[in-house]
Amino acid sequence: MTDIWIRTLTALGIGAAGAAVAHVIGAPAALLTGPALAVSLAAFAGVRLALPASLRDVAFVVLGVGMGTGVTPASVEAVVAWPVSFAVLAAAVTAILVFGALAVHGLTARERNTSVLAASPGHLSYVLGLSLETRADVGFVTVVQSLRLLALTLVVPLVVGSGTAVGMAQGETLAVHHLACLIAGAVVLGLVLMKLRVPAALLIGGMIVSAVGHAGDWTPGVLPNWLALPGFVVLGTLIGTRFDGMDRAALRSAAGAATVLTGLAVGLAAVGAWIVATLTGLPLVTLLIAFAPGGVETMAAMAVALDADPAFVAAHHVFRLLWLTLVIPLFVERGALSRE
C-alpha cells in the first residue's frame, strides 16, 4: 500500500472516530464538525494525513445531489428576495475585508497586501494566486485562511444551535435509476462548470441537476444515508487535512489574527443576516449560514445539516466569491500586480 493511501485511510479513520464522538455528545452538525476538529488536532500533533482529489470530488458530487433534494416550492418563491440579500451581503463582505485587514496589520504589523489577502473572507485559491503575484507572505496567508475556515466550521453550528442529526435522510429515498441519472448529470454539468472556473463546480453541478429533477418531480426522494453520511465525513476530514505538514510556529503566529478575523466575520455576517431577515422575513438561520464566510462546499453542506435552504446558501456563497474577485484588487497596493 502506497504512502498516500496509508495517510488517506488514517485521515478517514480519525475523521470517522471524530464524527462518532461528536454525534454521541450531541454536537451540532456532528458529521462535519467532528471530523474537522479531530483531523485538525491530529495534523497539529504531527500525524501525516492526506485526502486525494478524486475522493474529494466524489464527495462533492454526492453532497451536491443531496442538497438539490431539499428544493421546495417555498424555496423557489424566496428567490424574489435574493437581490436584497445579495446587496447586503456585498456590503458585509466588503466591511469584513476592510476591518479585517486593519486588524491583521494592527496585530501583526504585516505589510498591506499580506494583511488584505489574509483578511479576505474566502476565495482561497484566488487569494493565494494574488499572494504570489504581489509578493505577499504566502505562508502566513495560507495558515490564517485555513484556521479561519476551521473556526467557522466549528462556530457556525454553535451560533445557529440546531441540526445534530446531520445528513439523516427523511422520507422516501431516491430510486436507484433516479440516483444514477442524477449522479451522471451532476458529473457532466460539474465538468462543464469546472471549465468555466465556477467555484465548487462538482458540488454546484450536482445541486443544480438534483434541484431541477426535484422541482419537476421527475426524481422524487432523498439521498440514502449510506451515501450522504460518508459524504459529510469526507468533507469534514478534508477541512482537517489542510493542516497536514504545517509548521507549528507558523500556526502559533497566525492563531491570534485568525481568531480576531473569525470573530469579526461572524459578527458582521450576523448583522447583515439580521438586516435581511428584518427586511424580507427570510429565516434568520438560513441567512446566518448564507452570510458566514466559510467554504462554499462546507457552508452549503452546513445548510443541509442545520435544516436550512441549501440552494439559497450556495447561491450566496458563490456570489460572495464573485464579489471578492472584483473587490480584492481594489485594496491591493497600486502597482503591485505589475512588479517584477
Rank of each mutant, 00 (worst) to 15 (best):
D309F: 09
L306R: 09
P329E: 01
V313I: 10
L326W: 06
A254T: 03
T325S: 11
H317N: 11
A255F: 08
F312V: 02
R252E: 02
L287M: 05
A292V: 06
V332R: 05
T262Y: 00
R320S: 07
A270W: 07
A273D: 04
A308M: 10
A250L: 03
P329F: 02
A258M: 03
E333R: 14
A270C: 06
A315Q: 11
L282I: 05
T280Q: 10
V271C: 04
D309T: 05
V318F: 01
L264D: 03
S253I: 07
A290V: 13
A257W: 03
E333G: 15
V285H: 15
A315I: 12
V318P: 01
T298R: 04
I289M: 14
A303M: 13
G335S: 08
E297G: 12
L321D: 13
A292R: 06
P293D: 13
L326I: 02
T262I: 00
V327S: 09
L261W: 02
F291G: 12
G335M: 02
P329D: 00
W274A: 15
M302T: 10
P293K: 11
G335N: 08
A300R: 14
T286C: 11
E297I: 14
A273H: 05
F291S: 13
A290S: 14
G267D: 02
T262H: 00
V318I: 08
T298L: 05
I289S: 14
L330W: 07
A277P: 11
G272Y: 00
G272R: 04
V327G: 10
A257F: 03
T278I: 15
M302P: 09
L322P: 02
A250N: 05
L282D: 01
T325V: 09
G335E: 08
D307C: 13
L326T: 01
H317M: 09
A315K: 11
A311R: 12
L268W: 02
A257C: 06
M299R: 11
G256Y: 00
A292F: 09
F291Q: 13
A265G: 11
L306Q: 12
L284M: 14
L330E: 08
P293Y: 15
I275S: 08
L288H: 11
L288V: 14
A305C: 06
V332Y: 04
T280I: 10
T286R: 11
H316K: 04
L326F: 04
T259P: 00
M302D: 10
W274C: 13
T259Q: 02
A258N: 01
W274M: 15
V285S: 15
L279Y: 11
A303R: 14
A254V: 01
R334S: 08
V266D: 01
A305T: 04
A300P: 13
L306F: 09
V332D: 07
L321M: 13
R320K: 01
D309V: 08
H316S: 03
L322Y: 06
G295D: 08
V304R: 15
T286A: 12
V260K: 01
I275K: 09
